[in-house]
Amino acid sequence: MDAIFKALGDPARRAILDSLRARDGQTLTDLEGQFEMTRFGVMKHLNVLEDASLIVTTRKGRFKYHYLNALPLQEAIDRWIDPLLAKPAARAVIDLKSKLETAPMLEAIKTPDFVHQTIIQCSAAALWDALVSGEATSHYYFDTVLEGEAAPGETLIYRAPDGSEMLSCDVIAADPPRRLEMTFAPHFIPGAPSSRHVYVIDEMQGACRLTIEHYDLPPEMQGIRDGWVLIASRLKTWLETGKPLPVSTMGG
């Protein structure tokens, strides 16, 4: 928590977050041309933001791409700031979170449209089971129930409480409990094209790092990003406490 507020306390770092909000997946070269500071100065600010988990990076070839990670702010709101909504000190953080939307990426190289990352106090097996178990999804994935098997060539279907298909995902690759790659066909958006998303689980001492990458998302569907923030935040809370987040925190 201290690292988050330290990172947000500097106007240059907030400006970097604003730049990534406008166009995610930028390289150091992309960012340094936007600010009146040295390349080393931009790099130092990026390191502080990465230490606070407010950005995550991916490397493709010799290029390193930087992505805004909204999850730490969502988790701060859910677990600490939410009771203090009336206080001015909390309002600045909430206002910043409301801006964390992304524009389509302009890079031709196949990099994610956005990346979310969070640390969850659980085993890799428990996290994998929560991602693929039909009994688990209702606790964090917008009250849906998952049907199907997480195996290549199979299809996972997320059903709404009324039984309708909310989302279907064809499994491209599965390496339990480390990696799951699937298509993403949202039936709750009429005529929406299919895209692709990946779960990556890295075991740590007593915890797991969950990374969510989303690829090929059309410009008109960038709001999907906010949905992932809420899903991941609810998943973390449910696995760590056994209780889902209140519906009031779901942004609606």
Results as ranks from 00 to 15, higher is better:
M1I: 09
F5G: 00
F5K: 08
K6A: 13
G9T: 01
D10Y: 01
D10V: 02
P11C: 03
P11Y: 03
R13H: 07
R14F: 00
R14G: 03
A15P: 05
I16L: 15
I16H: 06
I16A: 03
L17K: 08
A22K: 12
R23Q: 15
R23D: 11
D24I: 04
Q26M: 15
L28Q: 12
L28K: 10
L31W: 05
M37K: 11
T38H: 04
R39V: 05
R39L: 07
R39N: 08
R39K: 13
G41F: 03
G41M: 06
L46C: 06
N47L: 12
E50H: 11
E50V: 01
D51Q: 13
A52L: 08
I55S: 07
I55F: 11
V56Y: 04
T57H: 12
L71R: 09
E75T: 09
A76Q: 13
I77V: 14
R79F: 06
W80E: 15
I81S: 10
K87D: 13
P88L: 13
P88A: 15
A92Q: 12
V93I: 15
D95Q: 13
L96A: 11
E101D: 11
T102K: 07
P104I: 02
L106G: 12
E107W: 07
I109A: 15
K110Q: 11
P112A: 04
V115N: 03
V115Q: 04
C122S: 15
S123C: 05
S123I: 02
A125E: 15
A125P: 00
D129M: 05
D129P: 00
L131S: 00
V132Q: 01
G134A: 01
E135P: 01
T137Y: 08
H139R: 14
Y140D: 06
Y140K: 06
Y141D: 05
Y141M: 14
F142C: 02
A150F: 01
A151N: 09
P152N: 02
P152Y: 04
E154R: 15
L156K: 03
G163F: 08
S164M: 06
E165I: 10
L167E: 06
S168W: 12
C169N: 14
V171Q: 06
V171Y: 10
V171L: 08
D175Q: 13
P176F: 03
R179L: 07
L180N: 03
T183D: 10
F184S: 05
F184N: 09
I189N: 01
I189G: 00
P190D: 10
G191I: 09
A192T: 02
A192C: 08
S195C: 14
R196D: 07
R196W: 07
V198E: 11
V200R: 15
V200L: 14
I201A: 06
D202A: 13
E203F: 00
M204S: 04
G206Q: 03
L210W: 02
I212V: 15
D216W: 01
P218G: 10
E220I: 00
M221G: 02
Q222T: 12
G227V: 01
V229Q: 13
V229C: 15
I231E: 03
A232P: 00
S233Q: 04
S233F: 00
W238A: 05
E240F: 02
E240P: 10
T241L: 08
V247L: 12
T249Y: 05
M250F: 13
G251Y: 10
G252Y: 09
G252I: 11
